[in-house]
Nucleic acid binder design. Structure first.
Lengths: 168, 168
DNA sequence: GAATTATGTCAGCCTTGTTGACATAAATAC
DNA sequence: GTATTTATGTCAACAAGGCTGACATAATTC
């Protein structure tokens, strides 16, 4: 409720109050992302899964053989948070673990046939929404949009954006 | 854990398996949105607030005088969820309520000077991130990006995107 | 052989969603 | 003018998915 150090914001640091703020894009991003995630959310409900399961399924699908540590690094959550959700995906047969060939302490993660199919089913409505939006907005330069999103990511994390596996 | 009706997804409905999926954009949107929200999150911490407070502050700032019901409709959460967070913003003096002039049951919401300043401070890093990304991606056509985001929103909700107040 | 590393797990807490039930005041209907 | 509906608030309980701290095990490395 009450914070410790309240940064005074009467005049935001290094703002001369004339800087134009992209309020419209900020708000649009909120609405767009909310609806974007609502499609798979509905499907996940049928499986008793949540958005957290979706993320894991996505990354394991597209970076097959990644270790638990690598997954933690990409998702930026604690191993306790991951374990709770990952365990369910393993127990229900969507993901399997195999001991690392070089380092047998590691657990390499792979999706099963079911896992791959579920990941695809979850991505489908999202992809179609993007596709429809691209056409509706009359965007020919898809690469520009890709560059924009990439540039929105913190520089130090951009290397994680490199696909280890071509997108299906 | 176990759902009731498991939609079989061996071959996703109305997919001929040749449809290209925008896996890369789906993933980029996840990373971009995560970093995009991390900027204000850090600032909010100092106030003992969370992302929920940010959303309320944003909408009340840009649609001053909106009622509780209107805010609920925009945020798409329950009044119990809203109440918990809104109450804190009122108690700490960032938002005030005034009885509706026509209908005195309604509570019109307004940000205080402090609320407006906080909303601006929260928006600033997000706006700068967008600005930097636009330049970095070499996007001249800002309007196209705006159209894209707008098109990503469910059609029936797009009327909520119309600003009642020019963006500051 | 000892220390470090990769992973798993237990217990408890927080935020922000949810549902259901009920209270109050003001507007509207009859 | 009483009855109903509406706008808002509030209590209680629950769920998902974050978090911290502590500890266990097996395998690797020093």
């Amino acid at each position: 409720m009450t914070g410790s150090t309240l940064p005074v914001v009467e005049r935001p640091a290094s703002s001369n109050n004339t800087e134009p703020i992209h309020f419209d894009l900020i708000e649009l991003l909120f609405f767009a992302y909310r609806d974007f995630t609502s499609d798979p959310d509905e499907l996940l409900l049928h499986y008793g899964f949540g958005r957290a399961h979706h993320r894991i399924l996505h990354f394991v699908t597209h970076r097959p053989g990644m270790t638990v540590a690598e997954l933690l690094d990409v998702l930026r959550i604690t191993k306790q948070s991951l374990a709770r959700v990952l365990k369910q995906l393993i127990d229900t047969g969507y993901i399997v673990q195999v001991p690392g060939p070089r380092d047998r302490r590691q657990r390499e993660l792979y999706v099963t046939k079911e896992g791959k199919e579920l990941a695809l089913a979850l991505a489908l409505p999202q992809s179609r929404r993007i596709d429809a939006a691209l056409r509706e907005a009359g965007i020919q330069d898809r690469a520009a949009l890709e560059r924009f999103f990439r540039a929105m990511v913190n520089p130090e994390r951009r290397r994680q954006l490199d696909r280890t596996t071509p997108s299906e």
